[in-house]
Amino acid sequence: MLILTCPHCGIQAEETELHNGGEAHLKRVGPDGSDEEFEGYMFARRNPRGVHLERWRHAYGCGKWFIAARCTVTLQVFGTYAAQTTTPPDHIVQAVRAARPDWNPTEEGASE
C-alpha cells in the first residue's frame, strides 16, 4: 500500500485515496506531429526498473494532480511535487541523486 504525500494539501494519503496517471512530463504531440512522434507520445513508455516520475491524483482528497519520484523496485519515494511543471524541480533531483548519484532526469525523462 503506497503512501504518498500530496504536495498541494500536505496530506499523507494512502494508495486507496489516490489515482495513478502513468508516466509524467510527457510532451503532448498535437496535429502537427508526425506519426512517429505521435506514437512515441501515446505509447512508448520508459517503464524503468528504477526511478520513475509518475503522475498521481489526490482523487479522494483535494483533487489535484501531482508527480511522484518513486523507485519501481524498492518503492522508495524521493519526493512529490505539483504537476504544473515540465521538469522535476531541483530539490527532487537532489533527493534522487542522494540515493542514485548517476540519475539524470533530462536524459531519463525524455521520450525519444
Partner: peptide, 20 residues
Amino acid sequence: DRTGIATDGPRSLAWMSPDE
C-alpha cells in the same frame, strides 16, 4: 489555512484545495 476549516458564528469556510 491549508486543510483548515474556519468557523465564524453560523458559517464555516473550509479549505478544499489550493483554489477551492
